[in-house]
Design a binder for these strands. Sequence first.
DNA 1: CATACTAATGACCAACTGGTCAAGCGTCAA
DNA 2: TTGACGCTTGACCAGTTGGTCATTAGTATG
Lengths: 283, 283
Amino acid sequence: MSKKQQILESALQLFAEKGIEATSIQHITQEAGISKGAFYLSFPSKESLIKEIIDSFMKGFVADIDRVVNSSKKPGEKLRLYFLAHLALLDKHADFAKIYAQEPMHALNEEILEKLIHYDAWIDRSLLSLLDELYGEPLQERRYDLLISIKGFVRIYSQLVLFHPYPHDIEKIAELLVEKTHVLAAYSKTAYLTEEMVELPMPGPEEVTTAEKLLSVIHEMLEEEQHPPLIAESISLLAEELQKETPRRAILHGLQANIYDYAPAKWLSYLLKKYEQKKSPDI
Amino acid sequence: MSKKQQILESALQLFAEKGIEATSIQHITQEAGISKGAFYLSFPSKESLIKEIIDSFMKGFVADIDRVVNSSKKPGEKLRLYFLAHLALLDKHADFAKIYAQEPMHALNEEILEKLIHYDAWIDRSLLSLLDELYGEPLQERRYDLLISIKGFVRIYSQLVLFHPYPHDIEKIAELLVEKTHVLAAYSKTAYLTEEMVELPMPGPEEVTTAEKLLSVIHEMLEEEQHPPLIAESISLLAEELQKETPRRAILHGLQANIYDYAPAKWLSYLLKKYEQKKSPDI
DNA sequence: CATACTAATGACCAACTGGTCAAGCGTCAA
DNA sequence: TTGACGCTTGACCAGTTGGTCATTAGTATG
């Protein structure tokens, strides 16, 4: 096991046990059986360690959910698998799940917070499309309320599984949640939530997506990894366009479409969308 | 405003803003416009400040919920008021609600954590009795699942209200949640949770309401603040009556009625009711 | 054995924490 | 005016934090 892996595992365990803020690098290195200095050979800072942990887990989870929702299974079965994916994650990665479920919003820096919200919204969008597929037109007005209700279900049952020492029957819980969802979809009549209430970033102050920020993200991407030719070219052109006095919206939009399906560029793609929205709020 | 009140308000605001752990006494005293040393004239430690904040808010909240559930309203209306009480609390005390909703479990010390769980269980038991009253025998097997589901609803909609900058219609949300609850109670069939899984810690012997405890609460109240004349007199007379060999029930009841609508005495009023019930369980 | 190069260390730093306490302050009776 | 008294202060304490870097240990090559 590489030194970096050792650190990641020790950190994960301690974070889950005592929280991110309360876990010092001293503790982590001690747990991993290395010196303090050695930590900074693998990570430039504590923050980058946190980012890496969150990033890798959330990416994996988003991919899982995405796979379930876009599978060729019957919609009802997909919903069951959706719940199962959530619950199974808790079983498999209880340590990260605890961090994710409990870490207070303000304890983390802005960037990390945005990331979490972003991944969350991603998962929500997957679920929403599944709900549309399942219940169609009759649900339309109530779709966001159902979405939120399901999130409430998942959260509260997850908490139960996580923190209650009991040999839980995950399969049964998943089926139970499917039934609850069906019942709500079929018999609930009133609606409260609208699209704008849900889609706006829920916590925190306004996110400011500036051209400078986009450029710095692009810079990082170009430095750290090799990308396919079309992607690399699109990214470089994006940087070029963004440095202009008034970036042309159509160009940005098109280049963003080019990188939309390239996993390592998901974050950049998201920020670009925000940037476009900021520049053209009227559309 | 007393120095202690100043501190409490500044602390509450900062805790909600940045979290309990991340807020230092330096910050609090700076915000309150006093010196660091002055803090320790009002509180013996940071921990006791946290405890006091949690205690005062949770006591008020428990008393509110209890009042709703034990009112003479129709059960359906009680449920609506139950939700409304939760949502209204967020509106009125967003600062504390943020602390309560977000503070990670491990960040706080064991004792405080137990306190929170304890108050939570208190509220759960109130809700459970309301559910039994509403749905009776047919619910029995599913009562804990419904309980948990409702908690999930409340939590997720509360989060929405708290962190989403929007002029929310709390009345409408409460009605929506009533409907969801009715739907689940009526049409959901399967059950997962059993009593042992939920493990609502029953009131231990130490929390049985005794005359001594009431007297100590009264003592605290008389010390800390100025009260309106009728209130102050009622409280003093309560103390007098409780010190007798066999306090007269009618007197206690009447005096309790006097302070019923005085917010700072909510907790005392609640405890008095418990005390009366203990003394005359047959009524 | 000598050299050269990297990997790893832990003493050290400045900034912060919760908490203490001698010193100064204003007030008021004498 | 004096002096006593209690409220208030902020320098100070020991401890912790994230982060640095001169030094050393380990190893591969000649």
